[in-house]
């Protein structure tokens, strides 16, 4: 998460808010990279990966340990190699989940792909995160490494428009084939209509005050 600021209090503008909270400027907390020791088995995982993968410092942008979870930020050019080593040498046999997140404020790395790995042998979990720009949302597909990422990658493409190169059939999976836009992006509206109830109108959820 990058350092940014949030303005106002209620997430809506132009509503005639006279409370004074509209002028509020707050800085949003950001989580930086973590220095060693990481604690738990995380040091061991990082050591082993460094040993097995000489280009570690080139491939891993940063390491974050937060709330007892390890996240490796991997450069997309190196993702495929790193994934293979994690599977074959560090024994992360399962890729349980691939999903995305959209951070429009992080210019040049708006779209994040979050990959959750599980090692049954060592009973460990780690997370890989790959950042790609919205203008060039490409990264290698991991279907060759873990076949089970197939549908997860299709869903991530469907929801965020992130393109997984060399995927065997990257098509929409939850939305109809001819759908326009990528619903989970932050600039995609939720939709909804105002509801009338006993003469009063309740705005659609996306139009309500949000208390940032």
């Amino acid at each position: 998460m990058s350092t940014e600021t949030s303005n106002g209090m209620f997430g809506v503008t132009g509503s005639g808010d006279t409370s004074g909270f509209g002028g509020l400027v707050k800085s949003v907390q950001s989580i930086g990279s973590t220095q060693r020791p990481f604690g738990g088995y995380f040091d061991q995982v990082a050591d082993e990966l460094e040993r097995a993968f000489p280009a570690f410092s080139d491939a891993i942008e940063k390491v974050v340990v937060d709330r007892g979870e390890l996240t490796l930020f991997v450069k997309r050019e190196r993702l495929f190699e790193v994934a293979k080593i994690l599977r074959d040498q560090l024994r992360f046999e399962m890729c349980v989940s691939v999903s995305g997140a959209h951070y429009p404020a992080e210019v040049g790395r708006e779209l994040h792909v979050v990959i959750a790995l599980l090692s049954i042998t060592n009973n460990q979990r780690i997370r890989l995160e790959v950042c790609v720009p919205e203008s060039d949302p490409h990264l290698p597909s991991l279907v060759e490494v873990w076949a089970g990422t197939n549908w997860h990658e299709r869903e991530t493409y469907d929801m965020f428009g992130i393109i997984f190169d060399n995927h065997p059939g990257l098509t929409r999976i939850l939305m109809p084939d001819d759908w326009d836009g990528f619903p989970q992006r932050k600039d995609y509206p939720l939709g909804g209509i105002p509801i009338e109830y006993k003469g009063a109108t309740v705005p659609a959820p996306s139009e309500r005050r949000s208390y940032q």
Partner: peptide
Amino acid sequence: EGFRVPAGQVY
């Protein structure tokens, strides 16, 4: 309003 949750991610 609800409560605020500190920034970060968990699985």
